[in-house]
Design a protein around this nucleic acid. Structure first.
Lengths: 330, 330
DNA sequence: ATGAAAGCGCTAACAT
DNA sequence: ATGTTAGCGCTTTCAT
C-alpha cells in the first residue's frame, strides 16, 4: 500500500505538503499542488483512514444498535440512517443487542475503543448517566431516554388512542388489546392509549388485555384463546404489526372473518402490512423519516452544532385498510 | 481517556510490559503481571483499537455489502453473520449498494482504507480480478463469482426445477413463471430450472414467462395481465417470495382463488411467507446457515486457514403450504 | 524478565 | 509557500 511518504517522494515535496493538498488546508502553490495531485494519481494513493483516525480521534463511522435487524421493524430505520450517513462520509457499524443490556454495553465499549463518532441506539436500558458519560454523542431511536438526550420517536399513547378510537368509530363494541412487553416503554404507552379510550366503557375489563410480547407466534396463541373465551370481541388493537398478523392468523384458525367478525388494527406501518390479505390497517410511523432525522441530528451533534429539539415526535398516520375498512358497512 | 502510558506509570513498569500482559505475549513475571492488571483495573483502562489497528494493519471489523437491508431477504443473512462474527470479536460495517456498481466500489475502497479484515458481499458486479486484487479476503453470498472465490449459495436451477415439478405434480397443466431481473444470475438460473421442466410441454410458450424484477408491485402488475390474457394458467412459479406475494395480490384482484384456481409458489423462504393468507409455498433457503457459514469461512481466511470448499451449495427445501397444498384435491 | 526505542501513516504546530 | 518534527497509542524488535 502506498503511503503519504511515497507520494511526497514522487512529487518531490514533504509529507506536510501532501497532507495540505489532501486536506485542502494551509497554503500550497498551485504548481506544487498539481504535482502532488499527479503523483497521487500515478501511485493511485489513498490515504489511510486508520492513521488519520488515530490522530484526529474520530473515525467517520457511527454505531447503530438495534435489538434485531431481522425484526422487520428495524431495517428501514437502518437503511434511512445509512443513506444519509453514507452521503456525509460516514460508515455504519451494525449491532444486534437482542435487548440484552450486556450486549449493548459491550458494543458501546468496543465502539468507544474504535473511536466511533457517535451512536444511534434503539434501547430500553440506556440511562441518562450512561449516555452523558459516553465520550461520543448518542441519540435514541424509537424509545426515548430520560433527560435531554435527543430522541426520535412517536407519541405512542396518542397512537394507541387513535387506533382504539377508530375501532370504536367503525362500530366495534368490545375491543381487546394485545400489548407488547412490559419492559418496553412504547408498548406500555400504546396500552395506556387504549385504556384512555375504553377504560370507562361498561364492557371494559382487564381480561381484554393480553400479552403478545411483540411476537407473532405468541400473539397468535393469546389472541386465539382470547377470541374463543370472549366471542363477542369484535375489534382488536394489536400493539404492533407483527402481533396484528398473529391476530389475523388466530382469526383464520377460528374461522372468524376479518373485518366482518372482528376488526384488526396494528401499529408501526411496516411494509408487511400491505402484503397480507386482508391488508392490515395500522398506525403508521414515518420510519424512513425517523431514521433520517436521527442521523441528521447525530451528524449535527458530531459537528458541534446545537440541536433545536431534543425530543422529536413524529406524526402518526392512521392507515385504513381491509382489516377494518369494511366494518362500517356491516 | 487513559492510555497504556498511564497504566505503565501507575504500575511502575514500561509500556512494553503492559503491552505484554495485554497481549499475553512474551515473558512477564507473575507479580508484575498482577501489578499491571491491578493498574488496569484501577484506571479502568481499555486499549485503543485504532492505535492497535494502525500497527497491526487489521481492525477486527468486516464489511457486509448487501443490495438493500430493507429488502426482507437480507436481514437474516446479516444477522446470522453478525452473530458469529461478534462472538469472534469482529464488528460489522453494513453497506447498502442498491446493486450499483459505483457504490460497491466506493464501499470497498473506503473499507480498504479502514483496514477491514475481510468482506462478505452480495453482488453481481464483483469480478474475479477485483476480488483477487483486493488486499483483504472477500466471500460471495447468494451470488457466486467466477473463479475460485469462495461463495455461499444454493443451486438455483435445481430449485427452479423443484418448484416447477412440484406444480406439475399437484396437477397444474399450464404453469407460468415470473422471473427476476435479467442481470441477476440466480434469477436466470431459476428461470432455466423452470424451462428444464416445462420447455417441452405442448402448452409451453415464451409468453408464459414475464419479468417481475424481484419486485412485488411490478409482479402484481405483470401477473395480473398474464392471468387475464391466459386464464387457463393454473400454476405460477415466482422467482422469489416478494413476487409470489405480488401474484397472490393479482389473483385476489382478479377474484381468482389460490390455490383452487391457480397455485402459487415462491422462492427463498423468507419469514413473510408464513404470514400471508394463504400461506405461501416456497423453495426455502437455509438463510441463517448460509450467513453463518459465510462468516465462518471468512474468519478462516482471515486467520490464514485454508478452506476445504470454495463453492458452497446449500440444500433447498420445498415448503408445501396453503398456496399449493390443497391443489391435489381439486 | 523488563525497558528503550523505532515505527505504523497521518496531521498540525512551528520554523523557515 | 514549504519543510521539519513531534506525537496520536500501540506493538515489537533489540538490548540488557
Amino acid at each position: 500500500m502506498t503511503t503519504i511518504k511515497d507520494v511526497a517522494k514522487e512529487a518531490n515535496v514533504s509529507v506536510a505538503t501532501v497532507s495540505r493538498v489532501l486536506n485542502q488546508s494551509g497554503y500550497v502553490n498551485n504548481n506544487t499542488k498539481k504535482r502532488v495531485e499527479q503523483a497521487i494519481e500515478r501511485l493511485d494513493y489513498q490515504p489511510n483512514s486508520v492513521a488519520r483516525s488515530l490522530f484526529k480521534k474520530e473515525s467517520k463511522t457511527i454505531g447503530f444498535i438495534v435489538p434485531d435487524i431481522s425484526n422487520p421493524f428495524f431495517p428501514m430505520l437502518v437503511r434511512a440512517a445509512e443513506d444519509y450517513l453514507n452521503k456525509k462520509g460516514f460508515t455504519i457499524i451494525l449491532c444486534n443487542s437482542d435487548e440484552e443490556i450486556e450486549k449493548e454495553q459491550e458494543y458501546l465499549n468496543v465502539m468507544k475503543q474504535k473511536y466511533v463518532d457517535g451512536v444511534i441506539a434503539v434501547s430500553n436500558h440506556l440511562t441518562k448517566e450512561q449516555v452523558e458519560s459516553y465520550p461520543m454523542p448518542i441519540v435514541a431511536l424509537d424509545r426515548p431516554i430520560e433527560g435531554d438526550i435527543p430522541s426520535f420517536s412517536v407519541d405512542n399513547r396518542a397512537g394507541g388512542v387513535m387506533a382504539t378510537e377508530y375501532l370504536k368509530e367503525i362500530g366495534c363494541r368490545k375491543i381487546a388489546h394485545i400489548r407488547g412487553p412490559e419492559q418496553v416503554l412504547n408498548a406500555t404507552e400504546r396500552y395506556k392509549g387504549y385504556v384512555d379510550v375504553v377504560g370507562n366503557e361498561k364492557w371494559f375489563s382487564s381480561s381484554l388485555v393480553v400479552h403478545g410480547e411483540y411476537d407473532k407466534k405468541i400473539a397468535t396463541q393469546v389472541a386465539k384463546k382470547l377470541l374463543q373465551e370472549q366471542p363477542d370481541i369484535d375489534g382488536v388493537f394489536a400493539g404492533n404489526d407483527m402481533m396484528a398478523l398473529g391476530v389475523l392468523k388466530a382469526a383464520e384458525e377460528l374461522e372468524l372473518h376479518v373485518p366482518e367478525d372482528v376488526a384488526v388494527i396494528g401499529f408501526d406501518g411496516i411494509d408487511l402490512t400491505e402484503m397480507t390479505s386482508p391488508e392490515l390497517s395500522t398506525i403508521s410511523q414515518p420510519l424512513f423519516d425517523v431514521g433520517t432525522k436521527a442521523a441528521m441530528a447525530l451528524v449535527d451533534m458530531i459537528q458541534g452544532r446545537n440541536l433545536s429539539e431534543t425530543k422529536n415526535l413524529f406524526p402518526l398516520t392512521l392507515m385504513k385498510r381491509q382489516s377494518t375498512i369494511f366494518r362500517k358497512e356491516v
